[in-house]
């Protein structure tokens, strides 16, 4: 049905890319399901770890950080999976940098297709599969930890959450694309990518909720684009963002997406100029 709708339009070729990619992924079914299920293991260790903290003999919530209860923390880490499911783009930077380095980019430059949109569709296909599998794997996990999911979000929080997921996806795609473009200027970026990934892991609040860190750090870190890849969607849904703050939080997120869009356009323009000048 979608095919009939899209045929003839310019979106058609992107649909073909998307479906080809999807088929490729499905062909390796066992591999895929295993990956999708075991991704939840860190959640298990995290719950156990925090449970041990909250139930240790000398436990007292330190005054220097925002108050979080055990249910808050567990919900935070659980929702983090959903948020990262939108924002993380595994392998994207690497693929782009290799395309540039190995001269494979020529294949795209000579075709009537935008490389950026090609990559975006490709990732969207990835995400589609991810969420298809998630429909099977997420509910049982959330059911198992249901006693920790205490907060029932308001309508505003749900809306804010969905908007923040859109921001999360675009931040992920645009940032990964930008970093990949560095290959236009630097020969070897694979190790550098690792540094970036590690930073992203930390600054998105994936490792520790950002508000638990010393307030001097939180103050700046929470407004970086990385916070929109995980921290903010989680905080919104566990009810830690007040209604009057919601506008600011989402507004700054969109601002970052806008800035990234411009940067991607510029980088691509300069990069491809350099690319054709050097000869790939």
């Amino acid at each position: 049905m979608i095919e009939a709708l899209l045929k003839g339009t310019s979106a058609w070729k992107y649909w073909v890319i998307l479906s080809t990619r999807t088929q490729e992924d499905m062909a390796y079914r066992a591999n895929y399901m295993v990956g999708a299920l075991f991704r939840f293991l860190p959640l298990l260790t995290t719950i156990y770890l925090w449970y041990a903290v909250f139930n240790s003999p000398g436990y007292a919530w330190s005054g220097r950080m925002g108050k979080m209860t055990l249910p808050d923390i567990v919900s935070y880490y659980a929702i983090m999976f959903v948020a990262r499911g939108f924002s993380s783009m595994p392998g994207m930077t690497r693929d782009i940098s290799l395309d540039i380095k190995d001269g494979l980019l020529n294949r795209y430059l000579i075709r009537p297709i935008s490389y950026f949109w090609y990559q975006t569709m490709y990732r969207l296909a990835h995400k589609l599969i991810f969420w298809l599998a998630a429909l099977i794997t997420f509910p049982p996990v959330f059911y198992l930890i249901r006693e920790y999911l205490k907060h029932s979000p308001t309508v505003l929080e749900w809306v804010g959450f969905f908007i923040s997921l859109i921001i999360a996806f675009w931040t992920g795609v645009l940032f990964s694309f930008l970093i990949g473009c560095l290959a236009f200027w630097f020969l070897e970026i694979s190790t550098f990518l690792f540094v970036i990934m590690t930073m992203e892991f930390f600054l998105s609040g994936h490792l520790i909720p950002l508000n638990l860190m010393p307030s001097a750090i939180v103050h700046y870190v929470q407004w970086l684009p990385f916070a929109y890849e995980g921290y903010w969607p989680c905080m919104i849904l566990i009810g830690k963002v007040q209604p009057d703050q919601m506008g600011t939080v989402l507004g700054i997120g969109f601002l970052w997406v806008g800035i990234f869009f411009v940067l991607v356009k510029l980088c691509w323009k300069w990069g491809t100029q350099r690319y054709s000048a050097v000869g790939g």
Binding site: L49, V53, G58, M65, V195, L207, L212, M213
Partner: peptide
Amino acid sequence: TEVIWLGMQFIYVEVLYSLTQSI
């Protein structure tokens, strides 16, 4: 990279142990 990674682990441990004496 490894130093950054270890630093992050330290921060994590620090945060956890600011709440309790023993885990």
